[in-house]
Amino acid sequence: MSTDGWPLWEVFVRAKRGLSHSHVGSLHAPDAELALHNARDLYTRRQEGVSIWVVPAASITASSPEEKDSFFDPAADKVYRHPTFYDVPEDVEYL
């Protein structure tokens, strides 16, 4: 069986209810349904998740490393964008 044509999928797993899906890795699969199956076998073998998303890697538009300066640096000195003036109550996880 030739597998050259199997597209790449990016896998996102939600570890528990209330958390968001996090990128965990990628895999090859011929279609979405099998990508989901493969993701279950590769990335949730130890009960790591309660939900899985698979996304065709080709569908992801990513920022380019060359644009790093113009994209991210301007935020560095805008301290008022950060919620640093609030006290975080105790026992509030995942804020």
């Binding site: 597998t3 199997w6 895999l27 090859h28 493969n38 076998d41 590769l42 073998r45």
Partner: peptide, 12 residues
């Protein structure tokens, strides 16, 4: 198996 992903699936 045809793909490393399938190695894992059958191994599981």
């Amino acid at each position: 198996a045809p793909q490393i992903e399938e190695d894992m699936a059958l191994g599981n």
